[in-house]
């Protein structure tokens, strides 16, 4: 990640994918050790390894709202 701002991708039905220079801290402000450059933050609440995603959204059937279909011309 050179230069540009950190980017977060809200993955449909899944986690928040974070690329770039972001410090992840716990509720007391202590840094959470990051093992890789790109990380996935749990969004469904079901992960066993918070704050990271462990794929549990698929097990619990987590669904994000679908973007509205553009109206027909």
């Amino acid at each position: 990640m050179s230069g540009g701002p950190a980017r977060v991708v809200a993955c449909p039905d899944g986690p928040l994918l974070v690329r770039g220079d972001v410090e992840v801290v716990d509720p007391d402000g202590r840094p959470v050790e990051r093992h890789r450059r790109t990380v996935a933050l749990c969004r469904c609440g079901a992960t066993g390894i918070p704050p990271w995603c462990d794929g549990s959204h698929k097990v619990v059937g987590y669904r994000t709202p679908r973007p509205e279909t553009p109206p027909a011309p």
């Binding site: 991708v9 993955c11 899944g14 986690p15 994918l17 093992h35 890789r36 790109t38 990380v39 996935a40 066993g48 390894i49 990271w52 995603c53 462990d54 794929g55």
Partner: peptide, 16 residues
Amino acid sequence: DEHVEADAVHEQIAGR
């Protein structure tokens, strides 16, 4: 344990 965390990232990148 590494794959639990890593592949939750990889599946998003590889899928999309």
